[in-house]
Design a protein around this nucleic acid. Structure first.
Lengths: 154, 154
DNA sequence: CTTGAAAGGAGATATAA
DNA sequence: TTATATCTCCTTTCAAG
C-alpha cells in the first residue's frame, strides 16, 4: 500500500495522459517495461486508479455554461439529507455536489448549454427537490484553470 | 462539426470508460468496428476529445481534504487579474479556478492532505500572491457526487 | 529489479464488396 | 459505407539472472 517515488511519478504521468505505451512510461521513469507494467496493474488492483476516461472540450460540445450553486436545506434531518443527495445524484447536469461546512449546506457544480437551459434546470429539476430552503447561484465568467490531476508531487 | 446520435453515444461511453476496445464500442452502438474507429479519430482530430487520463482515488492517495475558497482581489485592474491568474495556474493544489459573477471574484477548488497542509498552503502560497483582498474557505464534509462526464444525453 | 522470449490481441491501413 | 485481410506494435505472461 506504500507508494514509492516511481509509483508517484507513474501516477502523475497517467493522470496527464493515459494513452501512452508501457514502453514510454518505462522510458520516462528509467525502468523496464515489465516493471512498469506490473506497477500499473498493482495500482489498478489496489484501487489507486479508479478508471480511465476521455475528457471532452466543453466549448466544442456546447456545454460551457458553468454555474456554482449553493443550496441550503430547510431542516437537516437524516431523512432530508439522504433524500436530497439521492435526488442530486440523478441529475446529469450536476457534475459535483459537496456537503460543505459553513453558511450553506451544499455546493453544486452545474453544467448546461446556456442561461435558458439553466433557468429550466433550476425550475424543473433542482428546486423541484423537496426540503430545499434557498439557493444562490454564481456564474462562471471564465474557467481560469481546470485539471483532474491530483497534486501528488508538490 | 455536427454530432449525430452515434457520436453523442460514443462520447458518452468514452467519458465513462476509455479503455474498452473499438470492437466493444462498435457492439454497443450497433456499428462496425471500422466505422467506430473512424468516428473516434474524427472526434479526436476535431478536438472534441481533449485527452485521455487516469482518475485516481483521492482517499487512497491521501489527498482527500477538499476546500472551496472564494477570493476577492483588492483592485480589478487588467494587470492584477492577469497576475493573480498566472500565479494560481502555478499551484498544483488548485485543481480548479473560476472567475465568477457575484460577490467574490474567484472560486478555487483546492486539494491537500489535511487541515495542516491547508493552513500551510494558505499562508505560504495563496495569500502570498499580491493584490488578494480577502478569502473565505469552506471545507468539504462529504463529496456527494463527482463526475468528469459532461451531460451529453439529457 | 533486469533482460529476453513468446502468444495473443488490438491498432492502423489498404483493399474489396 | 461496411467488411475483410494484413502488418505491426503493444499487451501480457513467463523464465532466468
Amino acid at each position: 500500500m506504500m507508494l514509492d517515488i516511481h509509483d508517484l511519478k507513474l501516477l502523475q504521468l497517467l493522470q496527464q495522459n493515459a494513452k501512452r505505451t508501457t514502453k514510454e512510461y518505462a522510458h520516462r521513469l528509467g525502468l523496464s517495461t515489465t516493471a512498469v507494467y506490473e506497477r500499473i496493474k498493482k495500482l489498478e488492483r489496489q484501487g489507486m486508479v479508479l478508471h480511465y476516461v476521455a475528457l471532452l472540450d466543453k466549448k466544442k460540445v456546447a456545454l460551457d455554461f458553468v454555474v456554482f450553486c449553493h443550496v441550503r436545506l430547510t431542516r437537516h434531518t437524516q431523512a432530508n439529507i439522504g433524500y436530497f443527495e439521492r435526488e442530486v445524484m440523478k441529475l446529469p447536469e450536476v457534475m459535483e455536489c459537496h456537503h460543505l461546512s459553513g453558511d450553506y449546506d451544499y455546493l453544486l457544480k452545474i453544467v448546461v448549454r446556456d442561461m435558458e437551459a439553466y433557468r429550466h434546470f433550476m425550475v424543473a429539476k433542482l428546486t423541484a427537490i423537496e426540503h430545499i430552503g434557498s439557493t444562490q447561484s454564481s456564474f462562471t465568467i471564465k474557467e481560469v484553470k481546470h485539471t483532474t490531476a491530483l497534486p501528488l508531487l508538490p
